[in-house]
Amino acid sequence: MLAYILRRLLYAIPILIGVNLLTFTLFFVVNTPDDMARLQLGAKHVTPEAIDRWKVEHGYDKPLMLNAAATGSAQFTDTIFFKHSAAMFVFEFGKGDDGRNIGNEIRTRMGPSLAIALPVFVIGLLVNVSFALLMVFFRATYLDLWGVVLCVVLMSISGLFYIIAGQYFIAKLWNLLPISGFAGGIDGIRFILLPVLVGVVAGIGSGSRWYRTIFLEEIGKDYVRTARAKGLSEGRVLFRHVLKNGMIPILTGAVVVLPLLFMGSLITESFFGIPGLGSYTIDAIQAQDFAVVRAMVFLGSFLYIVGLILTDISYSWVDPRVRLQ
């Protein structure tokens, strides 16, 4: 298993270089270093000399990928791409164009992102699995039918609607919770309740339908019939056997997104004033802060790869037939 994980981590290096290269190319197709300088220096009184000075100070005065004026390996290393990318592989993200340390920002913002994303994920998973099992239990009855209708209705509504409706009713009309904001420690609970509630409700439709499909597929299998033939109650069949076997796709689907929870959610963070990583990324894109965009894409790719490795591990954990070699 250890050899497998190491091998997968080594495979990750070319993938991360590729992702980095792609991000770099896409970013600089749209923005030139001059554009970045102008945006940072503001719209007024910007002279060409000021732009040149900014580029020198921020390391954008070199060729993008190939330095024809240099010799030997410097042709590749004395470039914007190399200078701004190499350090990331040891998780040195450097500074954003606003001068703030990106690593510091990521560490600070990870907590608030997780404070929302983790409860939404865990509670959402429990609620969705429970609701799906309930629908499967009452399959082909009016409860199942209306459950599916409810899921389709919930799926059809935009996520933004849940946020606005939640804020309007719970925070504005009924004055039960703060409409937005964030605080650390015990005070923070009041602030995360509403976004977590909204996040869970918004995910019930799609989540429950998906799990219902998985459980329905399982429930028609031979081992379930055997269990019933042995005289087990329906509840025991569902919770002891169907749930356990249905957990394979659920777990693998869940594990792959687990590391990405760090990255936060853009809309939720923006509307609820959560100082997480989702809003950090979007702010950086708007500000054409390449250093932050590159760092966040790199981190996202790395976490996704970690998620895939964890998925493989979880396969072997939930299904003893799977062996990692």
Binding site: Y168, I179, F271, G273
Partner: peptide, 16 residues
Amino acid sequence: YSLEKETIPYWSKFLQ
């Protein structure tokens, strides 16, 4: 000064 990116929560909090 609190960070308030969206106008809806800002407006609601003002009214509150």
